[in-house]
Computed example of a mutant assay.
Amino acid sequence: MILQGDLEVFSLKSLKPMILKPLKEPLSAGGYGAFPSAALDFPDDSIDFLKLLVKDPVTTFPGRISGDSLKNIGVLDGDWCLIQKGIEAKPNDLVAATIDDQFFIKRFKPKYSDRNQLQTLKLKSANPDFSDFDITDETEFYLWGVITWTFRNWKKL
């Protein structure tokens, strides 16, 4: 299924396990260190990536992101995401929403009163070149799902 706006949404075609063997050693992202043991090239544990990424296959949909409105938080044009429907959006979550019949992915920014009642709702961009959406009673708005994962292809094979 392809929708207008910032997001293309697809359905999961297969629920077969995707088993990969992880490294046992954490991957350091800072500074130089000693080389890990060569024995770590042969881990004996495994991870089912589909099970790790998808908690409910019926309500989870992959999507491809279009545009750079979230580039300042590392979500770029062409990235992929997983969207789960039916879970509650929390402040600062990334959400997929329709606004005036167009699909968007934005940061969820509600503001609550002292009595925990919603006062205002903003769907925020993370790029000053893009506008935020102030959701009002007049806005045609539907919160479609919560983004649970984003992915980027670093090396085209």
Rank of each mutant, 00 (worst) to 15 (best):
S37K: 14
F104I: 12
G145C: 04
S125N: 01
L40N: 15
I105M: 11
M1R: 14
S14P: 09
L82E: 08
G74V: 01
S37W: 07
Q117M: 06
L15K: 12
P43L: 06
D56T: 06
I87F: 07
D137G: 05
L3C: 10
K109C: 11
L143E: 00
T148P: 10
R152D: 03
D48Q: 09
A97Q: 00
S14R: 08
S14Y: 07
L82H: 10
N153S: 14
R107V: 08
P62W: 05
F104S: 08
S28C: 11
K21N: 13
F130S: 01
K16H: 11
F133H: 04
K106E: 09
V58W: 08
I73P: 02
L3S: 12
K106L: 06
C81A: 09
K124F: 01
P57I: 06
L7C: 15
K13V: 11
V146L: 05
L15I: 14
T60P: 02
V146R: 06
I135T: 01
K51A: 12
S37Y: 07
L53F: 12
A89V: 07
L76F: 14
D101E: 13
E8C: 08
N116I: 02
D56Y: 06
G5M: 07
F151D: 04
G78C: 12
K109I: 07
P91N: 15
D41M: 11
E8H: 12
A39C: 10
K51V: 06
D132E: 01
G5H: 04
K122P: 00
I65D: 00
K111C: 03
G31K: 13
K109L: 08
D101G: 11
I47R: 05
P62Q: 06
F49V: 14
K122D: 00
F108P: 03
K55E: 15
S69G: 02
F141L: 02
N72I: 03
S37N: 15
S125Q: 01
Q102M: 14
K55I: 10
S46A: 14
L52R: 11
S131P: 01
G31N: 11
A39F: 14
P128L: 02
L53I: 08
C81L: 13
Y142V: 10
G30I: 13
S125W: 00
L143F: 03
